[in-house]
Each structure stands twice: as structure tokens, then as C-alpha cells.
């Protein structure tokens, strides 16, 4: 774009020539060998810039500005709805979240295996999440202990709304290996 403008204005106004052509510019008006090459290189640069811009736009085309995806924040009832020491499965199918309550509070675990994104199953007798795809296993806290999963399950932001309900926000996630589980939003004290 800018290269093209320079090119246009330069043809109208002989005073604004590309630097390489300036040396001979005053006396000679017709195209010399040297100025021809500098025009050529400007032309090529403009061509490359335009092509590059076009392909960047084409790449950008694949990333729309608005996504029509389900809402990522939901109200998950009152803290009293959850039993201490249990993994709650009621939001698994709809939102992909396990809500776990322990003695101190509540946290929301993502149901996406950190290996390749399958959905693990909660095995109540063995007290672990077990992924059927490649056999990764996680403790109730979300910490990985077997199989190929490279890191623990992620936790989602969980806060208490003004009306006393629990709100889970899936747009914000906390990763244990980055030390983010200590964040007050990653764990709701009750």
C-alpha cells in the first residue's frame, strides 16, 4: 500500500526519487540503467508486500471475530448442593465440568484430558479419573499420576455471586504446574 503510494507520487514528482536514483537525478530525465534497476526493485518490493498482505488476510480469514459457541459461564446452584468429599457429575454433560467439594471449599475441574482431549471417567471405587483413550489417570484433586498425560487437569474460575450461588467461568483456567491453583479464584473457600 505505502510502497504503491510512493511509486505513484514519485512518477509525478521528479524531486522525490528513490535514494539509489538520486545521484544522477538532476541532469538526466530519461530512465538510465541504474534507475531502471532501482525502479525494478521497488516494483518487486511492492509486489512482495502486496502478496504477503493478501496471504496474511487470507490466513486471518480463518479466525472469525464472533464465535457461535455455548455460553462459557454458568450458575451452578448453591454451595450446600454439593456433598463434602464427592465428585459432582451433574454439569459434566452440559458444560464439561466436575465440581468437587472437600472440607475447605469447592473447585471446578475441566473434563478434558490434558493428553489429547478425551473425556475421562470418574471411577468411584478406585477414587480416580481414568481416561479411556490412552489410559491417563488423575487423582480427585486433578493431579496426574499414571499414563501419558503430561500435566494435571485444569481448574476453572469459581466464585460466589451476590445471591449466594456458585458461578463457574470457563474462560479463565488455572494450571497447577504454573502454580496457579493458589489463586483465590481457582478455589472457593466455603
Amino acid at each position: 500500500m505505502t510502497d504503491l503510494e510512493i511509486k505513484k507520487s514519485a512518477t509525478k514528482d521528479p524531486g522525490r526519487r528513490p535514494p539509489a536514483a538520486l545521484g544522477k537525478a538532476d541532469s538526466v530525465d530519461q530512465i538510465t540503467r541504474r534507475s531502471f534497476f532501482s525502479w525494478l526493485s521497488i516494483g518487486w518490493l511492492a509486489f512482495i508486500a502486496a502478496t504477503g498482505g493478501f496471504f496474511t488476510m487470507m490466513l486471518r480469514f480463518f479466525f472469525p471475530n464472533v464465535l457461535f459457541e455455548p455460553v462459557q459461564t454458568f450458575r451452578a446452584g448453591f454451595p450446600e448442593d454439593y456433598t463434602i468429599g464427592e465428585v459432582d457429575l451433574r454439569w459434566k454433560d452440559k458444560y464439561g465440568v466436575w465440581i468437587v467439594r472437600n472440607e475447605e471449599g469447592i473447585y471446578a475441574l475441566s473434563t478434558t484430558c490434558t493428553h489429547l482431549g478425551c473425556t475421562p471417567n470418574w471411577l468411584i471405587s478406585e477414587q480416580k479419573f481414568k481416561c479411556p483413550c490412552h489410559g491417563s489417570g488423575f487423582f480427585k484433586t486433578g493431579i496426574n499420576f499414571e499414563g501419558p498425560a503430561p500435566r494435571p487437569l485444569e481448574r476453572y474460575k469459581i466464585i460466589l455471586a451476590d445471591d449466594g450461588q456458585v458461578i463457574v467461568d470457563k474462560t479463565k483456567k488455572f494450571q497447577q504446574e504454573k502454580g496457579q491453583w493458589g489463586d483465590p479464584e481457582a478455589f472457593m473457600k466455603v
Binding site: K92, T119, P132
Partner: peptide, 9 residues
């Protein structure tokens, strides 16, 4: 069914 992985997948 995005919430139910077959075993094995």
C-alpha cells in the same frame, strides 16, 4: 457425543 469417549478411542 462429545462428553462420552469410547473405550478405547
Amino acid at each position: 457425543n462429545p462428553t462420552e469417549s469410547p473405550n478405547p478411542a
